[in-house]
Structures are given as C-alpha cells and as structure tokens.
Design a binder for these strands. Structure first.
Lengths: 197, 197
DNA sequence: AAAAAAACTTAACAATTGTTAAGTGCTACA
DNA sequence: TGTAGCACTTAACAATTGTTAAGTTTTTTT
C-alpha cells in the first residue's frame, strides 16, 4: 500500500492533478501504467507508430529526432528526469508519428496511454484545466524556442542555450546540440574557438 | 433578435463551442464583447499592456511585432479575417505584454476579455475541451513554424511560405515577411532575383 | 590493453547572409 | 501635380555558415 500511495502521488505530480483525481480513476491509470527500462542508445519510440503513449522520465535522458528526406537525422528536443514526452504527431496532429525518441543515458520511464489520461481528465473541469495547463506550458516552451530562432543569430542561440541549460550541455553531444540549434557541429566548434580566442 | 442569433453563432464559431454554450453564458460574453475599427497603421494592442483582450478579426489584416533592445522591429506573426489573436505574454506567461499588434489594412475586430471566456468555459468539461483544442491548434501552428526554422535554410523557408500562403504574400510587405522569416529584406530581394535568373 | 568507432577540431573553399549605401520606383499627402 | 517618404532592388564588401576532408582525441568494444 505504501508503494501504491507513492505511485499515486507520482502520477498526481506528473499531471498536476492536485487532489481532484479520484482513487477509482487513479487505479485505472495505475493499472495501465507501464514501467520500462532503456539502455543508452535504445529507441523509446519509433517513427511509423500510431501509439499515444505518454512517457514520464523517472531518470535518464533522451533526445527526440526526425529523419529528413535526405537521410539526415535532426535532433528536435531533449527530455530528462521528471519530464514528460509523447508524440505530437499522434496526440495532437492525429497522424503517423515521425519522431524517434532515443535514450542517451540509462533511462527508466513510466508510461500511460494518452486516451486513458484524457478519458479520466475529461470527467472534471479541474482536471481538464490541468491538462490544458500542460499544453499551455508546452506552448510557452515552443514559443520561447521559436523566438530564439527569429531573434538570435546561430552564435547567439548557442550561447543562449549554454547559459540557460548549463547542466544539460554537459550531458549531451555537441553534434546533437548543433542540429537542435539549426547549425552544424563544425560551426559549433568554430563558435567555441572564437569565444576562447 | 436576428442580430443576436448571428452574433451567437459567430461567438460559437470563434471558440468552437458547438452547442454546449448556454444562452445565459452567451449573453455574458456578448455583453462584454466590443466591436472596434482600426485604420491602416493603427495599433490594436501595445507593449506594456496587461490586457487579456482576445480579438476576433471580422475582416482586415494585422501584424504582430516586438521591438528588440537595439530598437529593431521584428514581425512575429500575421492575423487576418476569421482569425483570433491575444497576448501570449498576459494570457499564458502572466507577464507584461511585449507584442504590438498593428493593422495593415482597415480592420474590424470583436473582442472579449480572456478571463471572461475562461470563467464560462471552466464550468463545463466540453467547453474546457474546446479551449484546450484552441491551444492545441496554436501549438500545432507554432511547432510547424519552428520546424521550418530548424529544418529549412532561409531560402527554402521563403519559398515554403510563399507556396503555403500565396494570397497572404500579396497583402504584406517583403520587409515584414523578411523578418518574420528571420532574414533581411535585402536577402529576400536576392532570393527572388536568384529564382528568376 | 589494443583496436575500432565515434566525437571533436581544424583547415580550405564555396555559397549565403548581413551590412551599408546608392539608386529606382511607387504611393501618399500636401 | 509635384514633392516627400517609403519600399524595393542592386552592388560591393565583410563575416558567418555549410561542406568536405584530414587529423586528433575520446569513448567503446573486443
């Protein structure tokens, strides 16, 4: 029972549901929740899928990437411990998922199908409000990132990222950071050497 | 009464509320709705404001822009007839608005305070779902725009925009389009001349 | 511990963009 | 109608980035 309670509070914290989640609904969530472990390099999710699985990161780190028509991999985001990830394509756009999620460190996740979450949230305005807040927050992040592309040069974008994510920078490869910032690894190297000079 | 009914259906279409909006709530919305007219060049909203006014464009066209520290204006978006706009800063980020909205054509809007909208939506899960869908849609748009920055070169971004917004391109200045795409007006000129050559 | 693989740096060149400035053309207002 | 202002184009130059490739360092695997 102690374990259940701890899981309950974890679920609550994931979805910011406060005390508006009924125990019966919680049990429904828990019943469908899956604990998964991934090694470094493992794919957590692949393109082509229609899964609406939502992952909560207990620990670890992963990158999201897409593969362009020319075969290039482009990293489009990072997720680390205590963060949540799902496929925008399947959940929001209702189309085939195009994003790969790859563990960059040993990672454990707790996952629940989005439809299950939505079904439960949908019963209560308070829970719907919380789901809405999750999206509002995601929107914030996306707008902020977009602004960095519109307003900053590649070099400024790099320093901005390093300044705002000092701990994350240490855990990821320049290669992945580079195309997350829309530039090449070679260019990152040059930016760094220009700085020290 | 005919006028009220038409306003009612308009409000419904704005917020995709379907038939879940009660007449009493509708009256509350209508009571606070304001019709405004703007001439070309007029500011619809200014930086520094804390207003959570949400504008529906009956007709016309406007651009959103911010002013950078160095004084440069940067166009960050366009809105035209049948579209909705509000301040991300005040509504989402809960901070002072930094975005100017300027009419580029004679424009009429219908506006309602966001808190009023939320108050009414919040009563019903169905309405909350619809509000959530508005955000989901906004998120889609933002993600798509972000992808164009991450995956495309400035030149590709320009042609992509022209292809997807052929009618809008005719109504806006290259100058505004340029910094919306994160490039300079001079560069747009060159891209165009390269194409014809 | 050695070999292989991957990440990072550096260099050279081509291409694009930014910047500044001059010139052309259009629009709007007096 | 003509003048002023604004938008757009073109040109020249500097700076940055992309690309390719070679060399170095680090990490991983055998």
């Amino acid at each position: 029972m102690k374990k259940l309670t701890s899981e309950f509070s974890k679920i609550k914290s994931i979805y910011n549901t406060g005390k508006d989640l009924k125990l019966s609904d919680f049990l429904l969530l828990i019943k469908s929740a899956k604990l998964k472990r991934f090694n470094k390099g493992d794919l957590i999710m692949e393109a082509g899928s229609h899964s609406k699985e939502v992952f909560y990161f207990n620990n670890g780190l992963a990158r999201m990437y897409v593969i362009k028509e020319n075969g290039d991999e482009v990293t489009v985001g990072f997720r680390r411990e205590n963060q949540v990830i799902g496929s925008y394509d399947t959940i929001l756009f209702e189309r085939t998922n195009q994003v790969y999620i790859q563990a960059l460190e040993p990672t454990t996740t707790l996952s629940i199908d989005y439809d299950t979450i939505f079904e439960i949230m949908y019963k209560s305005p308070v829970l719907m409000k919380n789901l809405y807040l999750v999206f509002a927050d995601l929107l914030k992040t996306t707008i902020t990132r977009l602004e960095s592309f519109v307003l900053l040069t590649p070099e400024e974008r790099y320093f901005d990222f390093v300044k705002n994510n000092p701990e994350l920078v240490k855990r990821i490869h320049d290669k992945h950071l580079a195309n997350f910032l829309g530039i090449t690894p070679v260019s990152i190297s040059r930016i760094k050497s220009r700085q020290t000079a």
